[in-house]
Amino acid sequence: MRILIAEDDPALADGLTHALDQAGYAVDCATNGEQANLMLHDAVYDLAILDIGLPRLDGTEVLRRLRQRGSKTPILVLTARDAIEDRVLGLDLGADDYMTKPFNLVELEARVRALIRRGQLGSNMALMCGSLALDTSARRARCGELTLDISAREIGVLEVLMLRQGKVVNKEQIMEALCTWDEGLGNNAIEVYIHRLRKKLEMSGARIRTIRGLGYLLEEEKANAT
């Protein structure tokens, strides 16, 4: 996995490089917009972390040129400005996610993992949660070496939950994902699917939580969690 970091603040660039290097990624670093633009042009990256306020060439401009070339490299935008317009502009130009400085390193690492996973979704990458793996193209779920006996609709529900791992997924979102199978799916039907999935995932290290009034959330079961 190759990551480009385009950040002009040396302390931040150094910290990020070390952290991602430790996490096992190959990291390149650009300290200005022109350099970042050239590097993104010459090499293929699995992810680029792009500061908006880059010298010489603004981060949004680097992003615009990258998308103009048709590149689909996932981009995580960093910004010190929290004006909402900046975020909207970044996302409009094709950024995949943004973070406001200062940020928590753990959260950045989580988003990097998610973006890389999403970037490789098309290339038969399995979604993972604990020892649970979901092959989205073969539509099969495995727990370690054991293939789980899960129906197509349950796979659909599981896919939505796994794609938004750690985040709340509401019933409307689940219904949308299932509407290819069922017209006018009832609330109860979803509860039934969730109930069945919970049983089948019991030993997988993945757990579906019910969030009162909001929906469901899939998370990795912590060893010490009750």
């Binding site: 750690g166 985040k167 969030i211 009034g213 959330l217």
Partner: peptide
């Protein structure tokens, strides 16, 4: 309110 609460679930 629903969306904001969802963001704080984690």
């Amino acid at each position: 309110a629903r969306e904001t609460t969802s963001e704080w679930v984690s």
